[in-house]
Design a protein around this nucleic acid. Sequence first.
DNA 1: AACCTGACTTCGG
DNA 2: TCCGAAGCCAGGT
Length: 106
Amino acid sequence: MTEFTEKIIWYIQNIPRGKVLTYGGVAALAGNPGAARQVSWVLRSYTEKLSLPWFRVINSTGGISIKNIQGYTLQKTLLEKDGIVFNEKEKVDLKAYMWDGTPSSP
DNA sequence: AACCTGACTTCGG
DNA sequence: TCCGAAGCCAGGT
């Protein structure tokens, strides 16, 4: 695994409760803005092994990308448990919830 | 080495 | 505003 991939994992693990990050956002923080798809690959490959907070990663429109209805519902439920609110279009306010990458932001 | 895959993103019609 | 097409990157076969 490359250093880039390790950074992706690090950022995902450090997303604070109540915050989210987009796939492209994680890739950008990890140093490669164009590698959003690699982030999805990491989630699919390492979520179970490393117990990653996978549900805090959403797409650039503020919505959930999981196709499977059960996975979609699970992710939405977990995010709401974090205090994140979805609007009538099933989207969250990225300007309010997007994590800036700072480990401690109280 | 070539080709395929994916829980993505962006741009043009 | 909405949808399809093309672009993107690393890992797996």
